[in-house]
């Protein structure tokens, strides 16, 4: 149990710390392995030992040999999609988050619809959209049905984070701004947005990565072209070679870059807000 600094740690601490370390190893170990194996030598296989090192598998990724799909275009497509989905998620969720601060007719229904979208087996959503488009005689495509399908996944997550952020927002700030004569837009721009900004970056991050990695809802809805996760899926069911690991390394690096940027921005904002002061004891 929690003890104060300076007091000896209870035995349970060491047990739990070891458990936690094992958990982190479990989380990172496999990823580390595919990272290393993606540099497998030219004669090496899908597992250890390493037969030297090479960049062959990364080269294969980039070359359009037919053995592997068109990875560079799929990556680019996924990134475009992720940026778009992230931007829409931020705008739609922040706006809805503001609405949910007050009661309005249908608020409960809307909220539970969002929750339902989150817990719904993803395949059904994609299936339903594909079916609907087919019945209406429309063609499924990346930025219509594909984007819509991804939003049903990113929006509920974004909404949860927005709630967690706006729910902790002290409304008295806004009331004070109203007293000082700020309009609704000025209150949002000058008061609310700066205060909830770290949460907004969090929503953007979720929107980006959830879209970037989305597979089951996209599978039936993106039309003729593939996003990166769909390319990976195609590879797992067809050719299994260290190229797959190279691809894993590439996509993980992209995720890491985005994540690092987001954490850095949030960290910077939080630090600036605390004015560099230590929190009072």
């Amino acid at each position: 149990m929690m003890t104060e600094p300076g007091q000896p740690r209870p035995k349970s601490f060491y047990f739990l710390a070891a458990f936690f370390a094992a958990f982190l190893a479990f989380m990172y170990g496999p990823m580390l392995v595919i990272f290393i194996l993606s540099f497998q030598g030219e004669n090496g296989g899908m597992s250890f030992p390493m037969e030297g090192t090479s960049l062959l598998w990364f080269k294969q990724l980039l070359s359009d040999t037919g053995r592997v799909g068109d990875i560079p275009s799929a990556l680019l497509r996924s990134l475009e999609m992720a940026v778009l989905a992230s931007a829409l998620t931020v705008v739609i969720c922040v706006s809805a988050g503001l609405a949910f601060r007050r009661r309005f007719p249908g608020a409960g229904l809307l909220f539970y619809t969002a929750v339902a979208s989150l817990v719904m087996p993803s395949l059904f959503v994609g299936f339903g959209i594909a079916l609907g488009f087919k019945q209406l005689g429309w063609r499924t495509s990346l930025f219509t049905s594909g984007l819509g399908a991804q939003l049903t996944w990113t929006l509920p997550f974004g909404l949860m984070i927005t709630f967690a952020t706006i729910g902790r927002f002290d409304r008295r700030y806004e009331e004070a701004a109203t007293d000082l004569g700020a309009s609704a837009w000025q209150r949002f721009k000058d008061i609310i947005l700066p205060i909830i900004m770290p949460g907004v970056v969090g929503v953007a991050l979720f929107g980006f990565t959830l879209s970037y990695d989305e597979f089951p809802r996209s599978q039936l809805t993106v039309g003729a072209v593939n996003t990166l996760p769909l390319e990976i899926w195609a590879m797992t069911t067809a050719a299994i070679s260290p190229v797959l690991f190279a691809l894993g390394t590439v996509t993980t690096v992209v995720s890491f870059l985005v994540l690092t940027a987001a954490i850095a921005i949030i960290g910077l904002m939080v630090r600036r807000r605390s004015g560099g002061r230590a929190t009072p004891a």
Partner: peptide
């Protein structure tokens, strides 16, 4: 703990193969 959540589930699944 949260970082792996932000990486591809597909890749995390594949990473158990080796």
């Amino acid at each position: 703990c949260t970082i792996p959540f932000f990486t591809s589930n597909m890749i995390r699944m594949i990473s158990w193969m080796p």
